[in-house]
Amino acid sequence: MAERQEQAVSDAVMTRIGQGVLLHHAGDREEARGRFLDLWAEIGEDGDPLHRCTLAHYMADTQDDPADELAWDLRALSAAEELTHDRPARRDGAPAARALYPSLHLNLAADYVKLGRSDAARTHLYRARSAADALGDDSYGDGVRAAIDRLEARLADGGPAGGPWGPPRRRP
C-alpha cells in the first residue's frame, strides 16, 4: 500500500512537471517558471533525484539570464549523478538519468557558449557525444544527436579547428 502511494506521488510530480512544460511550449514562459519554482519549493533540495533532475532540466529552459540557466542545468546534472551512483534506494531512476546525460551535457555546453566560455562548452559537448550511445534510435535520440552536431559545427566555426573530437559526426 505504501509503495502504491509513493508511486502516485511520483506520478503526480511528473504530471505537474509535464504541465509546466506544456505551458512553456505554448509560450507562457512566466507561468511555467512560476509553477516550476512552486514545485521546486515542495520537492526541496533533498527530494527525489529523478524529480529534481527533470524539474531543473526544464526550469533551465524558462530562464532569461544565461547564468541562471547554467545554474539550473548544473542542478539537473547533479541530481542525475545521484541517480547513477551506487545508491540502492534510488537506483530505479538510474536508466532514465543515463538517457538524459546527452541532453544535460548538451544544454550545459550551450549555456557555456552563451556565457562565452568555449573551453567549458567543448568539454560538455564532448561528454554529450560520449553519452549519446544511451539514446534510442527514435525521434528524441535523433534530435539530440542532431543538436550535438549543430553545436559542434558552431564551435568549430568560431573556435579552434574542430575541437578534440574532430568534425561533427553524421549518423549512417
Rank of each mutant, 00 (worst) to 15 (best):
Q63N: 05
P66L: 07
D38G: 06
H124L: 03
R91V: 11
N107G: 09
R35T: 02
P66A: 07
D38W: 00
A96V: 11
D65W: 07
D86V: 10
A76W: 00
D48I: 02
S78G: 11
R91P: 04
Y126M: 10
R52V: 02
G44H: 04
Y58L: 07
G34E: 05
L39P: 03
L106F: 14
D61F: 10
D119G: 08
Q63K: 14
L83K: 06
M59C: 10
D119N: 12
L77T: 04
E82I: 02
R98H: 12
R91E: 13
G93V: 05
T62Y: 08
A79D: 02
A110K: 11
T84M: 09
R33A: 11
R33G: 01
D46G: 09
G44Y: 01
A99P: 00
Q63P: 04
T123E: 14
D46F: 06
H124Q: 06
D38V: 03
P95K: 05
S78Y: 08
H124P: 03
L108M: 08
G34C: 00
L37V: 11
A120F: 12
D119A: 15
L39T: 01
D64E: 14
P49F: 03
R127E: 11
P102W: 03
R35M: 09
A32E: 00
D61S: 15
D68R: 13
L104P: 02
W72T: 01
A110V: 10
L83R: 04
I43N: 04
A109M: 05
D38N: 10
L37R: 13
H85D: 14
S118Y: 13
L115V: 08
L50D: 01
G93M: 02
T62W: 07
A67Q: 14
E69Q: 15
A121G: 07
R52I: 00
D92M: 10
D48Q: 09
R98M: 10
R52C: 00
L50Y: 02
D38T: 10
D73Y: 06
H57Y: 14
Y58R: 09
L37M: 10
A80P: 03
R35F: 04
A96H: 10
R90K: 11
L108W: 06
H51C: 03
A71E: 13
L108Y: 07
A79P: 03
T123Y: 10
Y112E: 12
A79I: 03
P66N: 07
V113E: 13
L100D: 09
H51I: 00
L77S: 04
G93R: 02
Y112H: 15
R52P: 00
E45V: 10
D61E: 15
M59G: 10
A128P: 01
D64H: 11
A71N: 07
A97C: 03
A32N: 03
L39Q: 00
N107Q: 14
L104R: 01
D68S: 13
R33H: 06
H105V: 02
D68E: 15
R90M: 13
L37F: 08
E81D: 14
D68W: 09
T123W: 07
R127M: 08
D38K: 12
Y101L: 11
